[in-house]
Amino acid sequence: MNQNPAIGHNSVPKMTARNVNVFYGQKQAIKDVSIDVTSEHVTAFIGPSGCGKSTFLRCLNRMNDTVDGARVEGRIELDAQDIYAPAMDVVQLRARVGMVFQKPNPFPKSIYENVAYGPRIHGLARAKADMDNIVESALRRAGLWDEVKDRLGESGTAMSGGQQQRLCIARAIAVDPEVILMDEPCSALDPIATARIEELIDELRGRYAIVIVTHNMQQAARVSQKTAFFHLGTLVEYDDTSAIFTNPKATRTKDYITGRYG
């Protein structure tokens, strides 16, 4: 029986990480992290600034490949496939494991073309009608369709911040990913837009495995069912969100939750 609390027993994990270490040059940013991510739950990564939570998130779709001097050790699997294996197609991986960044980053294209971009690259639509359906479906799932259906030709960069972030979520889900990674998706948004994104995360739960990095503990408590607490590059504790916030096992977790540091 594996005693590691970071490893779930209830369901087949969508992604697994075992003994992951990340280095930027000589500096070690992540130390020996093992965790399972399932499709049933939203998993939140919390912890103080610089604790490694975003660095670890970026390992899950190999975004650290784009950082000079970054080195990832250990094993990360998607459906039991090693995502760092030489045969792994990184473009395909990033279609399967989508990413939504902290700052909304729509392309300087129309709303329609923002969503159609991925499906076009991956050849998911044979005809214009197919693409129209994919775009409408993604915008509906992102809770945007009714707001933008009459202005699909307008620039995505002209929308409000909250709409831009939902457009980026629509863009991520248009290629029908299996996992969605969100790196502090609400940190640049006002409370109303934040509430809309949180509702959206709840609506998407179960359809995708969702991992969200957040600085906002209340947000983690609202949107996630599993929470992982990172500190100084290590995974201190991983458990049901309710347990982390009401009955944490580790002193460091308790100190962070109660605001002793952060």
Rank of each mutant, 00 (worst) to 15 (best):
F107E: 08
R205D: 15
K149N: 14
M217K: 13
I169V: 03
V175S: 14
P108G: 07
K128H: 00
L204D: 05
A142L: 04
S110F: 03
K109V: 15
V148H: 13
D190V: 13
V148D: 01
W145V: 04
R166M: 06
R222G: 10
R205S: 11
P119S: 01
L152T: 02
D89Y: 08
A95Y: 11
V148F: 03
Q165K: 02
D183A: 07
A174L: 05
A138Q: 00
M88K: 07
V213R: 00
E136T: 12
K128D: 04
R140M: 10
E203P: 12
D130N: 02
K128G: 02
P191I: 10
R96E: 10
I121W: 09
A174W: 03
R196W: 07
G123K: 06
I134W: 06
L93N: 03
A220W: 00
G153E: 12
Q102N: 09
I192R: 10
S160P: 05
Q218S: 13
I111D: 04
L144H: 02
R207D: 15
P104D: 09
L152K: 00
P191L: 10
A95D: 11
D202A: 14
M131F: 08
R196G: 12
D130T: 07
D89H: 11
I121A: 08
I134S: 06
A142Y: 00
A142G: 01
V97M: 03
I134E: 08
I192V: 13
V213D: 10
I210V: 02
G143H: 04
G161L: 10
N133S: 12
L167C: 01
N133A: 15
R196H: 05
V148T: 05
Q165M: 08
E178G: 07
A220I: 02
A174R: 01
A195W: 05
A195M: 07
M99D: 04
V91P: 13
I201L: 13
I121R: 14
E113G: 14
R205I: 13
M217P: 12
R166W: 01
V90N: 05
D89T: 07
A129L: 14
R205T: 08
L200V: 05
A127Y: 15
F107N: 10
Y112P: 00
R120W: 06
A170V: 06
I121V: 15
D150Y: 11
T214E: 00
G153R: 12
V91T: 11
D190F: 02
V175N: 12
R166L: 07
H215R: 00
A170L: 09
A209P: 13
D202S: 14
L167H: 06
M159A: 15
I169A: 00
P119F: 01
I197G: 02
P108W: 04
I173L: 14
W145M: 01
L93M: 01
